[in-house]
Amino acid sequence: MGKQAFEASLATGRHRQLAQMVGDWEGRFRLWFSPDALACEAPQRGRIRSVLGGRFLIHEYETRYNDEPVEGVVIYGYHLDEGNWESAWVESFGTGTSIMFSTGSGRAPCADVLGSYGDGQGGPRWGWRTTLDQRDPDTLVITMFNITPQGEEMRAVETRYTRVSR
């Protein structure tokens, strides 16, 4: 990554797009284990901050699954040399003791990354796709999709945020 390319991205490119997500957010967390049955809905608070001179975002959040607290941290970035979105996600509920690394084409209008996880029993891996859609400066929707080993995709998590502050 050249300094000029990064500065251009900060000014008008993907890194500017990431910077617009910086702030404190509140919203609703919704979770599905099957397509037709909402398993949980709870308030969620998040803070998104820029790190390393705008190279990455760190999203820290708190919500609940039923009566259990859930905490998570995600690093989002855009890899200029590869032209890809990237993320690394850890959570007290969803990822257990693993780090989910995900990547996705930079051609997508918003961050759209794909990772995978094991079923814990040695079976085939499942896909996990995450999208970030900032529809306006004060609205951010994060959607996560489960993808079966056969390729069937279904919504698993949706967080609809409203900005509290920049």
Rank of each mutant, 00 (worst) to 15 (best):
W85L: 13
T63Q: 06
Q44E: 06
F33G: 10
R107D: 12
S92Q: 04
V70Q: 15
A8H: 01
I99R: 01
I147G: 05
V51L: 13
L57M: 12
R49P: 02
D138T: 14
K3E: 10
A11I: 07
R28T: 12
G151N: 06
V70S: 13
V141F: 00
V73Y: 05
T159V: 15
T130V: 08
A19F: 10
G2E: 13
R28L: 12
E41P: 03
R160M: 11
D81T: 13
P109D: 07
Q121A: 13
R28A: 09
V164Y: 03
G46S: 11
A156G: 11
Y76P: 10
A42C: 07
E71T: 07
R160I: 11
S165R: 07
Q4C: 04
W89L: 12
G115V: 02
E153F: 03
G27Y: 02
W89R: 05
N84W: 03
R125I: 00
S9L: 00
T63C: 12
F145S: 01
R14S: 14
G13Y: 06
S92R: 06
W89F: 14
L140N: 00
T97D: 05
F29S: 13
F29P: 04
I58G: 01
L114I: 05
A39I: 00
L38E: 11
T95N: 03
L80C: 02
I99H: 00
Y61I: 06
G104F: 01
V73G: 05
W25P: 03
R155Y: 02
V164N: 02
V74C: 14
F33E: 04
W126I: 06
W89A: 02
A108I: 06
G27I: 14
I58N: 01
D138A: 09
E41C: 05
W128I: 04
A42P: 01
G54C: 07
T143G: 10
S116N: 09
I58T: 00
S92M: 03
L57H: 10
W32C: 13
G77M: 09
E62T: 08
G94D: 04
R16N: 04
Q150D: 03
R28N: 10
Y117W: 05
S105C: 02
F101A: 03
